[in-house]
Design a protein around this nucleic acid. Structure first.
Lengths: 111, 111
DNA sequence: GATAAGGTCAACCAGATGGTTGAATATGCA
DNA sequence: TGCATATTCAACCATCTGGTTGACCTTATC
């Protein structure tokens, strides 16, 4: 049996997919634009997006020949709830978070 | 490159490992006792525990011939921080959490 | 010392994952 | 109509994952 939580955590386990999610924090994006900063094929990115969509972390909508990708942060709720049960974490400093994302993104696209 | 976050999320993606973590919320346990409710070999559980330890989610200490497993909830902090950046989630009702864990655990050990 | 208990190791297996390439399918535009 | 753009599909490949079994090592106990 594969649960929603399995899918969500598995999707988050890949740095490319986490980088994609953080890109989508800014704005909705077309598949081609999502793929641009990465050194891998468009087909590979398309697969990553499918994994994210299956986990409910993004939605995709085709308009014309462009498929738009949109973050669905609510899907992170179950996973967040699960983790919070293990400890009471302080509220997050969003500046720290942004710096964290930048570092991760650099590490992921630069090799 | 495999980051801490990769390891943490990948470890959490397996329902057996999440069940183990929730068992360890109660108390420290020996490997054999961790394995008892699961319908799989001791070797398989031993591997799962190794994955959790590699991700820093648990620690293991050998006393005599017994290896004790201990939850390390702090290791969830980075993952929790990462997710909280995507949305401000309400504080969690711990009763809900316990019911959630029970359901998940039943689903995982009963087939 | 012999035997039992707690755990891990090594080899193996099936299936999933993350990537590639080349062909195919829509859609938009001149 | 014909070409370019956006995206997926299909086949393939190497590696990882989650499980098995049987042998092995260490520590207790009789």
């Amino acid at each position: 049996m594969t649960t929603d939580l399995d899918l969500a955590f598995a999707a988050l386990a890949d740095p490319t997919r986490r980088a994609i999610l953080s890109m989508l924090l800014e704005d909705d994006m077309a598949v081609t634009d999502v793929a641009e900063p990465f050194q891998m094929s468009l087909a590979a990115i398309s697969k990553h997006l499918q994994v994210l969509a299956d986990a409910g972390l993004i939605s995709q909508e085709k308009r014309g020949r462009v498929k738009w990708c949109k973050l669905e942060p609510d899907a992170l709720r179950a996973a967040s709830v699960w983790m919070q049960g293990f400890g009471q974490f302080d509220p997050v400093d969003l500046d720290d978070f942004e710096r964290f994302l930048e570092d991760e993104f650099k590490a992921d696209t630069s090799d």
